[in-house]
Every structure is written in C-alpha cells, then in structure tokens.
C-alpha cells in the first residue's frame, strides 16, 4: 500500500503533468479563465486519462509487446484515447442524460489533449503492473486537475487586480504559470523511493 501512495504522490506532485512534464499546456492556458470550466475540464480529463491508461496498458502488454509492434504505440494510443473519449461521452449520456447535458461539452476537447497521450506513453515505458499503471494514470490526472484549478483561481484573482497595461492578459498569465512551476519545484525534494 505504501508503494501505491508514493507512486501517486510522485505522479501528482513531483512529476506533475503540467508543471514538470510540460504536457497539456494548451488546455492549461485556454480553459483556466474560469474556475468552473477548469474543474469540469479537469475532472473529465481525469476520467479519460484513467480509462485510457488501463486500456493502453492492456494493449501494450498483450498486443504490441508480444508481436514486437512497439513502433506503432503512438498511433495505437491515439486511437485508444479517441475511443476512450467516445466511450466516456456515450456512458455519461446513457447513465445520466441530465449530467451529460451539463458536462458533455468538455469531452470532445480532451481528444486532442497531449497530456492524455503523454501519460500513456510514460506508463508503458515504466515496467508497471496493471493496478500501478491505473493508479499512475489516475494520480497524474489528479495532478493535472489540481494545477488547472489552482491556476484558474489565480487568474480569477488577477482579473480583479490592477495589472500594468503591458502585462495584462496572457503575459501576466505566463508569469503566474512560471511562478507556480517554480513553487512546484519544491516537491522535487520529496523522495518517493521506498
């Protein structure tokens, strides 16, 4: 159990998808203008990354590995991610139409999110078992959501602040993001080796 906790802390904070691996920056800058959209997008991405991590692990270990097809992994994983997004959309629509009406808008955006593909490629390079790969995907995406929500909160605060005209808009957003990344560097001091 301790290994699982360390794996999750490492994936969510120490090697954060956005601030340490620099993946998913498009949605990080594009969807964080409002806190509610950041939460919706972050949690939808969490679901898709976790499900696609499970499927990618199975495809990698039972199809690509045995038949020596690793060179096809990027194309295969893109296909799996697109299928996972469609699966999520259909499932939410069938499970609860009211929830789909409220949340369905973010799902098509996730298909082109490089963080989803990045997490899948990272987890097959590490020799993890199935549950470790699933937890890695889940905690990586929780780290993604955490940073999205934090940054959205900061940008909402910035909207009420007096920013010099030259820095208004995206420039102060990038400066804030870089300061946030520096703050997250502090987590790199945590040893996650048991």
């Amino acid at each position: 159990m301790q290994d699982y906790v360390l794996l999750m802390i490492g994936a969510a904070l120490v090697n954060n998808v956005i601030l340490a691996r620099f993946l998913g920056l498009c949605s990080f800058m594009g969807v964080t203008t409002r806190l509610d959209t950041a939460i919706g997008m972050g949690l939808a991405t969490t679901f898709v990354i976790t499900v696609s991590s499970m499927v990618d692990w199975a495809v990698g270990n039972y199809l690509l590995g045995p038949y020596d097809l690793w060179y096809l992994r990027t194309v295969t994983f893109i296909l799996v991610i697109a299928a996972a997004v469609q699966f999520t959309e259909l499932t939410v629509r069938k499970v609860s139409p009211p929830l789909f009406k409220m949340l369905g808008i973010y799902l098509p955006l996730i298909t082109t999110n490089c963080a989803v593909l990045g997490v899948a490629l990272i987890l097959v390079e590490h020799k993890m078992n199935f549950i470790e790969a699933t937890l890695f995907g889940f905690s990586s995406s929780l780290g993604f959501t955490l940073v999205m929500v934090m940054f959205a909160g900061l940008r909402e605060r910035l909207a009420f602040s007096e920013v010099p005209r030259l820095f208004a808009g995206p420039p102060i957003g990038f400066i804030t993001a870089s300061l946030l990344a520096l703050a997250f560097l502090g987590f790199s001091g945590i040893s996650t080796h048991s």
């Binding site: 939460i39 969490t46 409220m102």
Partner: peptide, 26 residues
C-alpha cells in the same frame, strides 16, 4: 455547486469505486 456535484458524480465516483475494487483484487 451543482456543476461541481455533477462533475464529481459523473467522473470521480465511478473511478474511486473502480480503483477500490482493483486494489482489493490485486
């Protein structure tokens, strides 16, 4: 709050139950 509840219900609740069952099975 409704949006947050809906997001948690649709995405987080199924994942938590899934991970719990997976960890117990492992």
């Amino acid at each position: 709050r409704a949006l947050l509840r809906a997001s948690m219900t649709a995405y987080v609740l199924p994942l938590l139950i899934m991970l719990l069952v997976g960890i117990v099975a492992q």
